[in-house]
Amino acid sequence: MQVKVGVVQATPVFFDSAKTIDKLEALAIDGASKGCQFLLFPESFIPGYPRKFTFGASIGLRTNAGRELYKTYWQNSLQLPSPELARLEHIARDNNVYLAIGITERDTLSGSLYCTLIYISPIDGYLGKHQKIKPTGVERLVWADGTGKHSLGVFDTAIGRLGGLICWENYMPLARMRIYQQAPQIYLAPTADARASWPSTLQHIACEGRCFVLGCNQFFTRSDYPEAYQEFLTDDDTILCRGGSAIVSPQGEFMAGPLWDEEGILMAELDLDEVLKSKLDFDVIGHYSRPDLFDFKTSTL
């Protein structure tokens, strides 16, 4: 089966969820008009990845200004379900395109935030989500650990089996193995990692999982931050996130990208039979597994 996919490297409207969804809709229309059946958006595209923010916190200290900033970020994060989610479902349906979107998800009961990847079908609407099970470094200040329950799955859709992990979760071997166990054909890796070494991570996952890998990052400069947030930028860097999005084949070869230092939609035609053919060489859950030696189980709690 041939599937045309797009990886959207773009700048959100910080930290405005409504305007970011407006931009997402325009990008979805553009990608669908070019024949894309699936579009991936970066980690925390809605309402934006809070790079360089401290939220007024250090060990043993929190400030009222930091709490106020957290409140603003929380207010512009997405609740599930919500009118914003319904709008995203309409965008997918109106453009006949599957969407996977990195969001910051808010829990209105507990007040916590989660780094989440949501899946939306043009046929069935909202399919489900993956919550980041371990935020990286200082991200843990604002993002809680995802529960993992019903969140480490792969979705069987009309365009293939979709699943994946967010950013540095992809350095967690057992988390990757949980996804591999479900035989994804298209593995998603939205990220905020713009290091030159990140694309090699995508190549490794593709070779290890024998699947297509879509890596997606934001591109933004210091001028994209509203004036109210410029005070958080303590260095002179013009580009705050270079991007580095890419599409990789099951043999670990770049099909598109990496894309650096600009916005854009990377596109590629995926022949899902290539996933099957690549299993001749290596199959991490098949003939290259040793269940007599290794027993891997995932808690459902």
Rank of each mutant, 00 (worst) to 15 (best):
G148Y: 12
Y119K: 02
I239H: 07
R290N: 06
E84P: 02
D295A: 14
L40A: 04
N217S: 12
T298L: 07
G164W: 02
T300V: 11
Y225F: 12
Y49A: 01
L202G: 14
F296K: 08
G125R: 03
F38K: 09
F155H: 12
N64K: 15
F15L: 06
L39Q: 09
I29T: 02
A196D: 09
D30F: 01
L39R: 06
I21P: 14
C36W: 09
W143E: 10
I118Q: 02
P184N: 13
F55A: 04
D94A: 15
G35H: 07
Q79R: 06
A26L: 03
F294T: 06
V3L: 05
T300N: 04
I91N: 14
L80R: 05
A194V: 08
A18V: 01
Y180A: 10
W168S: 07
I21F: 14
H150R: 14
L240Q: 12
A268W: 10
H90I: 07
A144K: 09
W143I: 03
A194D: 12
G137A: 07
L40P: 00
Q131E: 14
G31T: 01
F55Y: 14
C241H: 15
I205S: 08
A189Q: 14
L293N: 00
F212M: 09
E269Q: 11
F55G: 06
D281N: 13
D261G: 12
G264I: 08
K129G: 01
F55M: 10
N217K: 12
P47D: 13
W74D: 06
M177P: 00
R290H: 14
V13I: 09
Y288R: 09
G48W: 13
I29H: 02
T116H: 11
A256Q: 10
D156S: 08
V97M: 01
N76L: 07
G66R: 10
L40Y: 03
D271H: 07
G286F: 10
F38P: 00
F232H: 09
S121V: 11
L24G: 05
V248N: 03
R195K: 05
L40V: 01
K134D: 14
E43M: 06
F296P: 00
G148S: 11
T104W: 10
K297Y: 05
I159D: 02
I21Y: 15
Y119P: 01
S299K: 13
E139C: 12
L39W: 08
W260A: 02
Q185P: 05
E274H: 06
V154T: 10
K134W: 15
D145I: 07
A158C: 04
L88I: 11
V154M: 03
S245W: 11
T11A: 15
S299F: 07
S278E: 03
A246F: 04
W260R: 07
A65M: 00
L80K: 06
D283T: 05
